[in-house]
Protein backbone atom coordinates (compact mmCIF):
# COMPACT_ATOMS: atom_id res chain seq x y z
CA UNK A 1 0.00 0.00 0.00
CA UNK A 2 1.39 3.38 -0.99
CA UNK A 3 0.41 6.82 0.20
CA UNK A 4 -1.22 7.69 -3.12
CA UNK A 5 -3.40 4.60 -3.02
CA UNK A 6 -4.44 5.51 0.48
CA UNK A 7 -5.28 9.13 -0.26
CA UNK A 8 -6.70 8.61 -3.78
CA UNK A 9 -5.04 11.74 -5.10
CA UNK A 10 -3.03 12.12 -8.25
CA UNK A 11 0.71 12.69 -8.26
CA UNK A 12 0.17 16.15 -9.69
CA UNK A 13 -2.08 17.11 -6.78
CA UNK A 14 0.48 15.73 -4.33
CA UNK A 15 3.22 17.86 -5.86
CA UNK A 16 0.95 20.91 -5.76
CA UNK A 17 0.15 20.29 -2.10
CA UNK A 18 3.84 19.98 -1.21
CA UNK A 19 4.59 23.15 -3.22
CA UNK A 20 1.81 25.04 -1.42
CA UNK A 21 3.19 24.07 1.98
CA UNK A 22 6.64 25.21 0.88
CA UNK A 23 5.18 28.57 -0.21
CA UNK A 24 3.43 28.95 3.14
CA UNK A 25 6.72 28.35 4.99
CA UNK A 26 8.48 30.95 2.81
CA UNK A 27 5.78 33.53 3.65
CA UNK A 28 6.04 32.57 7.31
CA UNK A 29 9.80 33.11 7.21
CA UNK A 30 9.33 36.56 5.64
CA UNK A 31 6.75 37.50 8.26
CA UNK A 32 9.09 36.29 11.01
CA UNK A 33 11.92 38.42 9.60
CA UNK A 34 9.66 41.49 9.38
CA UNK A 35 8.37 41.00 12.91
CA UNK A 36 11.84 40.04 14.21
CA UNK A 37 10.40 37.00 15.95
CA UNK A 38 13.24 34.53 16.60
CA UNK A 39 11.01 31.50 17.20
CA UNK A 40 9.08 31.98 13.94
CA UNK A 41 12.28 32.58 11.95
CA UNK A 42 13.97 29.43 13.28
CA UNK A 43 10.94 27.14 12.86
CA UNK A 44 10.08 28.48 9.40
CA UNK A 45 13.62 28.40 8.01
CA UNK A 46 14.33 24.88 9.25
CA UNK A 47 10.96 23.76 7.86
CA UNK A 48 11.62 25.46 4.54
CA UNK A 49 15.05 23.83 4.30
CA UNK A 50 13.54 20.40 4.96
CA UNK A 51 10.96 20.85 2.16
CA UNK A 52 13.87 21.29 -0.26
CA UNK A 53 15.56 18.08 0.92
CA UNK A 54 13.62 15.67 -1.34
CA UNK A 55 14.70 17.66 -4.42
CA UNK A 56 18.31 17.86 -3.23
CA UNK A 57 18.42 14.14 -2.43
CA UNK A 58 16.94 13.26 -5.81
CA UNK A 59 19.24 15.52 -7.83
CA UNK A 60 22.53 15.23 -5.95
CA UNK A 61 22.37 11.83 -4.31
CA UNK A 62 20.29 10.05 -6.94
CA UNK A 63 17.78 8.77 -4.41
CA UNK A 64 14.35 8.51 -6.03
CA UNK A 65 11.76 10.62 -4.23
CA UNK A 66 8.26 10.13 -5.54
CA UNK A 67 5.58 12.74 -5.00
CA UNK A 68 4.17 10.83 -2.04
CA UNK A 69 7.50 10.87 -0.19
CA UNK A 70 7.96 14.59 -0.87
CA UNK A 71 4.46 15.32 0.42
CA UNK A 72 5.04 13.15 3.48
CA UNK A 73 8.20 15.12 4.35
CA UNK A 74 6.66 18.53 3.61
CA UNK A 75 3.50 17.77 5.60
CA UNK A 76 5.48 16.92 8.74
CA UNK A 77 7.46 20.17 8.84
CA UNK A 78 4.42 22.18 7.69
CA UNK A 79 2.28 20.89 10.55
CA UNK A 80 5.08 21.61 12.99
CA UNK A 81 5.65 25.17 11.75
CA UNK A 82 1.93 26.04 11.67
CA UNK A 83 1.62 24.63 15.18
CA UNK A 84 4.00 27.21 16.58
CA UNK A 85 2.28 30.34 15.21
CA UNK A 86 -0.71 32.11 16.68
CA UNK A 87 -3.77 31.88 14.44
CA UNK A 88 -6.56 34.42 15.05
CA UNK A 89 -9.53 32.78 16.77
CA UNK A 90 -7.66 29.57 17.55
CA UNK A 91 -4.36 30.57 19.09
CA UNK A 92 -1.34 28.30 18.80
CA UNK A 93 -2.53 24.98 17.36
CA UNK A 94 0.06 23.12 19.47
CA UNK A 95 -1.53 24.49 22.63
CA UNK A 96 -5.17 24.81 21.60
CA UNK A 97 -5.93 22.01 19.12
CA UNK A 98 -5.78 18.83 21.16
CA UNK A 99 -4.77 16.46 18.34
CA UNK A 100 -2.22 18.78 16.69
CA UNK A 101 0.73 17.76 18.80
CA UNK A 102 -0.09 14.05 18.52
CA UNK A 103 -0.54 14.06 14.74
CA UNK A 104 2.62 16.13 14.22
CA UNK A 105 4.62 13.83 16.44
CA UNK A 106 3.32 10.66 14.79
CA UNK A 107 4.03 12.16 11.36
CA UNK A 108 7.54 13.40 12.09
CA UNK A 109 8.35 10.19 13.98
CA UNK A 110 7.27 8.26 10.88
CA UNK A 111 9.83 10.30 8.91
CA UNK A 112 12.56 9.41 11.40
CA UNK A 113 11.43 5.80 11.22
CA UNK A 114 11.55 5.97 7.43
CA UNK A 115 15.14 7.23 7.48
CA UNK A 116 16.02 4.54 10.04
CA UNK A 117 14.32 1.82 8.03
CA UNK A 118 15.85 2.77 4.68
CA UNK A 119 19.36 3.09 6.14
CA UNK A 120 19.41 -0.13 8.14
CA UNK A 121 17.79 -2.10 5.31
CA UNK A 122 20.40 -0.80 2.86
CA UNK A 123 23.23 -1.67 5.28
CA UNK A 124 21.65 -5.09 5.80
CA UNK A 125 21.55 -5.79 2.05
CA UNK A 126 24.96 -4.28 1.36
CA UNK A 127 27.09 -5.56 4.21
CA UNK A 128 28.33 -9.12 4.56
CA UNK A 129 28.81 -8.84 8.28
CA UNK A 130 25.36 -7.41 9.01
CA UNK A 131 22.20 -9.47 8.77
CA UNK A 132 18.99 -8.06 10.23
CA UNK A 133 15.95 -10.35 9.98
CA UNK A 134 12.53 -8.63 9.67
CA UNK A 135 11.57 -9.20 13.29
CA UNK A 136 14.77 -7.53 14.51
CA UNK A 137 14.32 -4.76 11.94
CA UNK A 138 10.84 -4.07 13.38
CA UNK A 139 12.12 -3.79 16.95
CA UNK A 140 15.12 -1.73 15.88
CA UNK A 141 12.91 0.85 14.11
CA UNK A 142 10.88 1.30 17.30
CA UNK A 143 14.06 1.71 19.35
CA UNK A 144 15.52 4.11 16.78
CA UNK A 145 12.43 6.35 16.88
CA UNK A 146 12.20 6.28 20.68
CA UNK A 147 15.89 7.20 20.91
CA UNK A 148 15.23 10.10 18.57
CA UNK A 149 12.21 11.10 20.67
CA UNK A 150 14.41 11.15 23.77
CA UNK A 151 17.02 13.22 21.91
CA UNK A 152 14.25 15.63 20.87
CA UNK A 153 13.13 16.05 24.48
CA UNK A 154 16.76 16.66 25.49
CA UNK A 155 17.08 19.35 22.81
CA UNK A 156 13.82 21.01 23.93
CA UNK A 157 15.00 20.86 27.53
CA UNK A 158 18.40 22.29 26.60
CA UNK A 159 16.85 25.17 24.66
CA UNK A 160 14.53 25.81 27.59
CA UNK A 161 17.48 25.96 30.00
CA UNK A 162 19.41 28.24 27.65
CA UNK A 163 16.38 30.52 27.25
CA UNK A 164 15.94 30.66 31.01
CA UNK A 165 19.60 31.50 31.43
CA UNK A 166 19.68 34.28 28.83
CA UNK A 167 16.16 35.51 29.49
CA UNK A 168 14.96 35.18 25.89
CA UNK A 169 11.70 33.48 24.86
CA UNK A 170 12.19 29.86 23.85
CA UNK A 171 12.04 28.53 20.29
CA UNK A 172 10.46 25.25 21.33
CA UNK A 173 8.19 24.86 24.31
CA UNK A 174 7.72 22.00 26.73
CA UNK A 175 4.14 21.77 27.92
CA UNK A 176 4.56 19.42 30.85
CA UNK A 177 5.07 15.82 31.83
CA UNK A 178 1.86 14.42 30.35
CA UNK A 179 2.67 16.10 27.05
CA UNK A 180 6.23 14.76 26.92
CA UNK A 181 4.99 11.24 27.65
CA UNK A 182 2.21 11.42 25.04
CA UNK A 183 4.80 12.70 22.53
CA UNK A 184 6.80 9.50 23.02
CA UNK A 185 3.64 7.37 22.78
CA UNK A 186 2.64 8.98 19.47
CA UNK A 187 6.23 8.77 18.21
CA UNK A 188 5.87 5.02 18.74
CA UNK A 189 2.58 5.01 16.79
CA UNK A 190 4.31 6.68 13.83
CA UNK A 191 7.17 4.19 14.06
CA UNK A 192 4.81 1.20 14.07
CA UNK A 193 3.08 2.48 10.92
CA UNK A 194 6.43 2.69 9.12
CA UNK A 195 7.65 -0.63 10.53
CA UNK A 196 4.53 -2.28 9.07
CA UNK A 197 4.18 -0.42 5.76
CA UNK A 198 7.72 0.86 5.24
CA UNK A 199 8.88 -1.93 2.97
CA UNK A 200 6.32 -1.12 0.24
CA UNK A 201 6.74 2.64 0.49
CA UNK A 202 10.52 2.79 0.62
CA UNK A 203 11.63 -0.04 -1.65
CA UNK A 204 13.09 2.24 -4.33
CA UNK A 205 14.89 4.41 -1.76
CA UNK A 206 16.42 1.28 -0.22
CA UNK A 207 17.61 0.07 -3.62
CA UNK A 208 19.21 3.43 -4.39
CA UNK A 209 20.91 3.61 -0.98
CA UNK A 210 22.22 0.07 -1.38
CA UNK A 211 23.73 1.02 -4.73
CA UNK A 212 25.34 4.10 -3.20
CA UNK A 213 26.89 1.93 -0.48
CA UNK A 214 28.21 -0.49 -3.07
CA UNK A 215 29.79 2.41 -4.99
CA UNK A 216 31.38 4.01 -1.96
CA UNK A 217 32.89 0.80 -0.61
CA UNK A 218 33.65 -1.53 -3.48
Amino acid sequence: MRIRDLLHISERRQRQAARGMQLFLAVMLLAGLLLRHAGVIVNASIGLFVTFLPGILERDAGIPMDAGLALWISAAVFLHAVGTITIPGIGKPYANVWWWDHVTHALSASLVAGVGYATTRAVDIHSDSVSLPPRFQFVFILLFVLAFGVLWEVIEFGIGLAAEYTGTPGVLTQYGLRDSMLDLVFDTVGAIIVAVYGSTQLGEVVDALTERLAESRP
Partner: peptide
Protein backbone atom coordinates in the same frame (compact mmCIF):
# COMPACT_ATOMS: atom_id res chain seq x y z
CA UNK B 1 20.05 -15.90 16.54
CA UNK B 2 20.14 -15.19 12.83
CA UNK B 3 20.87 -11.52 13.59
CA UNK B 4 24.44 -10.63 12.58
CA UNK B 5 26.04 -7.32 13.51
CA UNK B 6 29.30 -5.75 12.49
CA UNK B 7 31.08 -4.03 15.36
CA UNK B 8 30.07 -0.65 13.97
CA UNK B 9 26.41 -1.62 13.87
CA UNK B 10 26.73 -3.00 17.40
CA UNK B 11 27.94 0.41 18.59
CA UNK B 12 24.96 2.12 16.91
CA UNK B 13 22.66 -0.48 18.45
CA UNK B 14 24.08 0.22 21.92
CA UNK B 15 23.65 4.01 21.64
CA UNK B 16 20.11 3.71 20.22
CA UNK B 17 19.01 1.10 22.76
CA UNK B 18 20.38 3.04 25.74
CA UNK B 19 18.51 6.22 24.76
CA UNK B 20 15.35 4.31 23.85
CA UNK B 21 15.49 2.50 27.19
CA UNK B 22 15.24 5.83 29.02
CA UNK B 23 12.15 6.72 26.97
CA UNK B 24 10.50 3.33 27.38
Amino acid sequence: TSVKMSHRFAVVFVVVTTMAAAGI
